[in-house]
Simulated assay, not measured.
Amino acid sequence: MSDRSAIEWTEATWNPTTGCDRVSAGCDNCYALSLAKRLKAMGAAKYQEDGDPRTSGPGFGLTTHRGSLDVPRRWRRPRMVFVNSMSDLFHARVPLPFVRDVFAVMAETPRHTYQVLTKRSVRLRRVADRLEWPQNLWMGVSVENAKELSRVDDLRTVPAAVRFLSLEPLLGPLTGLELDGIGWVIVGGESGACHRPMDQDWVVEIRDACRASGVPFFFKQWGGRSPKTGGRDLQGRTWDQLPARGRLAAS
């Protein structure tokens, strides 16, 4: 975890769990899987558990870290915190009591705003009523193509203060995307050696839907060989909008 992050839409990362398994096309070139392999080779203690080679990899086996639960309590300055940049809190192998413990830490540190992102929207929906939802928790789902739009419907059932979408890596058009009950949308292209291109028309269609619905829109990157290869401009400007409760600069 880090109290500084290079991710444009957050300020810090906190990983009470690490590791994951591929579940859909958006996972094919997972940056966290590649990073975990390097961290294991470097001897990083949190990345010594290997995952199933069919869906995961070296150092990327799902692991809970009870010792990491206190980290946000030690951060005195308020931060925007991305929870589990190296995992998925709603992975089937994360015990529900541990999820509750993570939620409790968030409730006990209201000075921070927490951003939780999952691809496991079905489990999220099924356990939502067994969790206490603090007002400083933003809940999001990742959607990479139209096949995964049901994740948005699952998210709408969750009583989070802010519900958001991470449409990254965007791999196809999301025509007909419904934004009822959604408070923020992030769009980004894929980066890395095997990155898949993103069409400008897909992005513009989502941006225009956000503008029509009054939903803040954040354009993270075009992607390419590196995250910064294609830049962040969309039709001559950057889009850094955040929900009203955000502490980063909105435009």
Rank of each mutant, 00 (worst) to 15 (best):
F218W: 11
E205L: 06
V162P: 02
G214L: 11
M198R: 04
V187F: 04
L177Q: 00
K220P: 10
V143I: 14
V204Q: 10
R211K: 14
S191D: 08
G140T: 10
S213E: 14
G183Q: 10
R163P: 06
L179D: 04
G176Q: 09
W184M: 02
L155V: 08
M139C: 14
E132P: 00
L165Q: 11
C210S: 09
E148A: 13
L179H: 09
A193P: 10
G181D: 09
S191M: 06
L131D: 04
A146F: 06
G188E: 06
V187T: 14
P169V: 08
S213Q: 15
E190S: 09
R207E: 12
Q200E: 15
D199H: 13
L174G: 06
F217H: 05
F218K: 07
Q135L: 07
A161N: 09
V187C: 14
G172D: 11
S166C: 11
Q200L: 09
G192N: 11
H195K: 02
R196T: 12
Q135P: 00
N145Y: 01
W202P: 09
R130D: 14
G189I: 06
E168N: 08
G181P: 04
A193E: 14
L149V: 15
G192T: 03
A161D: 12
L179Y: 10
S166Y: 09
N136H: 02
T175A: 13
C194R: 13
A161I: 02
W202C: 13
P173A: 15
V141F: 05
F218P: 08
A161G: 01
W138K: 08
D153P: 00
G183A: 12
D129A: 13
S191T: 10
P159V: 03
D180F: 00
S213C: 14
S150R: 13
E168K: 04
G181Y: 06
D129W: 03
W133S: 03
V162K: 12
V141L: 07
R151Y: 09
V203D: 00
G172H: 08
P159W: 01
T157Y: 00
D154K: 03
G214W: 06
F164W: 15
E144L: 02
A160S: 08
I182Q: 09
P134V: 03
E168H: 08
M198G: 08
E132K: 00
L170H: 07
P134I: 03
R211L: 14
A193T: 13
W138L: 04
L137D: 00
F219R: 01
P197R: 10
A146L: 10
L174S: 02
G214D: 11
R151G: 04
A146P: 04
E178F: 00
V162G: 01
G181C: 09
L179W: 08
Q135G: 13
G140H: 12
W184L: 02
R196M: 12
V185W: 07
E148K: 11
V143A: 08
A146R: 15
D129K: 13
Q135M: 03
N145Q: 11
A193S: 14
S150G: 04
N145H: 12
L137F: 01
V215T: 15
Q200S: 11
G176E: 04
L149A: 10
